[in-house]
């Protein structure tokens, strides 16, 4: 018995160290992939920046769906709010410093996140889903009709951000935008890594599994998810603002139901409830989209649908979830 306890105490330590180590490894892999992307696809940096921007949306969705268990089909509302706010700040208020635009985007995303949270958490199950869809449609209609502010269906154009830090122009090849995006992604990733490992993150995972148990511990389910919605909104806001700054236009598609649904597809493809899953899902989905829609744009929606059905049937834990479960099992078998 004592021997067993000792062994466990020893086994406990390295597990913890390994966790921190895998965090560093993950960040290192993201950096390496970013550098590789820069040199391998110098003509496609705009696409890579778009991938980063969408990855931030998917990470943001992962926070509420993957970590808190709230199914939503309206998460693009948060992303679009960030994009339009950053864009309108530049076009209508002359706030053209990219960092200031980013701050505006984060604020707007947070506000949209809190608003969505208040509404979505009013109901459960199907009505909750309906609320989330209605929210993104409502945002879309509002942006469509307030065309003097948003450019309506033509999109909000002529956003002209200043050079980053006064030094780096946003060039035609998207080099600055790409580097800016990579840095933002890394910062968000590290912050979120801390958040999901913190007591708060543990509380959220608990809520996802059993909200009744969490209430019986005396914790507020509603309050906790609202906090997560605020963080999620901020992250989506970063993604939206990055999109506005890098493409210099904001279109109604950034507030669409389709984008919300696609973000969910990407998340599930990669695997819910893990930050790397969200990243892997986004990269594989958008890379795949780029290839397929170049070959045959007509079939894109059919293929997304088929992909979704296949993932649900054969890899319900997503690419990352399936792979890590496989590795875990092999490690255990070896022991």
């Amino acid at each position: 018995m004592a021997a067993l306890m000792n062994e466990n105490a020893i086994a406990g330590k390295p597990a913890r160290v390994r966790l921190a180590g895998s965090d560093l490894l993950g960040v290192a892999i993201v950096i390496a992939a970013a550098i590789a992307g820069y040199f391998l696809f110098p003509n496609n940096l705009a696409l890579l920046t778009r991938i980063i921007s969408i990855a931030l949306l998917v990470l943001s969705l992962d926070l509420v769906t993957g970590y808190c268990g709230v199914a939503t089909l309206g998460h693009a509302a948060l992303y679009g709010a960030g994009a339009y706010a950053a864009g309108m700040a530049a076009v209508h208020f002359g706030i053209t410093d990219p960092l200031a635009m980013m701050a505006v985007g984060i604020l707007a995303g947070t506000a949209a996140g809190l608003l969505s949270g208040v509404i979505v958490l009013r109901a459960h199950g199907l009505p909750q889903l309906v609320l989330s869809i209605a929210i993104v449609h409502l945002f879309h209609e509002a942006a469509n009709k307030a065309s003097s502010w948003t450019g309506g269906s033509d999109g909000l154009a002529s956003i002209a951000p200043d050079p980053l830090l006064g030094l780096f122009e946003f060039d035609l090849w998207s080099r600055t935008a790409y580097v800016f995006g990579v840095v933002l992604l890394l910062v968000v990733l590290i912050v979120l890594r801390l958040v999901v490992r913190s007591p708060f993150g543990m509380l959220c995972r608990g809520i996802k599994e059993d909200p009744i148990r969490i209430r019986a511990m005396g914790a507020s389910v509603h309050g906790t998810i609202m906090r997560m919605y605020a963080i999620s909104g901020a992250v989506a806001g970063v993604g939206g603002a990055l999109n506005a700054i890098s493409t210099q236009v904001v279109g109604l598609d950034s507030l669409s139901f389709t984008l919300s649904a696609e973000a969910l597809v990407m998340l599930v493809l990669g695997g819910t409830g893990s930050l790397y899953g969200a990243l892997i899902g986004t990269v594989s989905f958008l890379w795949f989209e780029d290839i397929v829609s170049a070959a045959n744009p007509f079939h894109w929606l059919t293929i997304v649908g088929a992909l979704l059905i296949l993932v649900v049937l054969f890899a319900p834990r997503g690419l990352y979830g399936t792979a890590s479960a496989f590795l875990e099992r092999r490690q255990e078998a070896r022991r």
Binding site: L129, V265, G305, V312
Partner: peptide, 26 residues
């Protein structure tokens, strides 16, 4: 998906919807 978690049902039926739209479009 009978009896599966809500998210699974949502994903499967959205997948079916997308497929049907794509095929109808084609």
């Amino acid at each position: 998906i009978y009896g599966a978690p809500e998210l699974t049902q949502v994903l499967m039926t959205i997948g079916i919807t997308f497929c049907i739209i794509g095929i109808a479009n084609f």
